[in-house]
Design a protein around this nucleic acid. Structure first.
Lengths: 144, 144
DNA sequence: AGCGATTAAGTCGTGTACGATACATCTAGG
DNA sequence: CCTAGATGTATCGTACACGACTTAATCGCT
């Protein structure tokens, strides 16, 4: 009667996410980045100078996760953190020289990961949207 | 040129897994379980008396993750850990009374999660297999 | 029988994650 | 203005997750 982990949708997500981080490791280790740090930089490469809260909203992370993560990235010279002059409650995150430099060095990462999936771009996009749909439905239930 | 996290397949997996764990929380909190602990119990409900290594193989977790997790579950009276008499290197994990008792109390969990996905069973199975396929391809690359 | 290689768990250090809470700053109603 | 509530970050405690390493037991080969 009970369902084995292997047969669960949730476990496929859980283990696929682990496999995904493992697949990123050889790409990110040479850059000295962890996967969440890579996400933060990716967000800043698209739009620099964001608040902690804005990054948290994009990445679905709480400040209690982001603050230590951002402090480590600041210590590594990847980003800068400073209080907003207009609203001293907010901390604005900007790219530091180290983070700018990685923009070029990490340019190949998306293509390498795509290759690792063994899927075509349309297939990847389709699966992404299905997974996004599931995520959004799960989050909807949580808020209601 | 850089891709925003929101558009990445990897990020959809990453955030969907977070949303999935959040969706399980209201189901598992009353049982006093975390999500990985629920996976361990699910594996034991299907097949009791497994070695640490066998559980690790099923759940794709290393012993350095499992050992502390299993010790917490032992302390909570969910499982028992003892050395195999035949091969003293192995530790066999069996259900303790607490873990047996939860089998009934957790019987509704899979259906509740299915409901939270807002998907039909065939849809869930199809998505699960797609995600499993991705996971297996990623793991294949890692081993080669 | 005996010893090096292999295997199974465990330990340690670092980095996420998140609930609960604390703190500082801003904002709105009186 | 001035304080009660709201907002944005940060802190603390607990629980994964994994790389690198250690320890103990078994196996394989002579």
């Amino acid at each position: 009667m009970p369902i084995a982990p292997v047969d669960m949708l949730c476990f496929s997500l859980y283990s696929a996410q682990h496999a995904m981080q493992a697949a990123y490791k050889p790409l990110l280790d040479p850059l000295g980045l962890t996967y969440p740090q890579y996400l933060v930089l990716s967000a800043l490469w698209v739009q620099d100078d964001q608040t902690v809260g804005a990054l948290g909203a994009q990445l679905a992370l709480e400040t209690n996760t982001l603050t230590p993560l951002l402090k480590r990235m600041e210590a590594a010279g990847l980003i800068a953190r400073r209080r907003d002059k207009e609203d001293e409650r907010q901390v604005r995150i900007t790219l530091a020289p180290g983070g700018e430099a990685l923009r070029q060095k990490a340019a190949h990462v998306p293509a390498c990961f795509l290759e690792a999936t063994g899927m075509s771009l349309p297939e990847v996009v389709a699966l992404r949207d299905q997974v996004k749909g599931l995520r959004d439905r799960l989050k909807l239930k949580a808020s209601s």
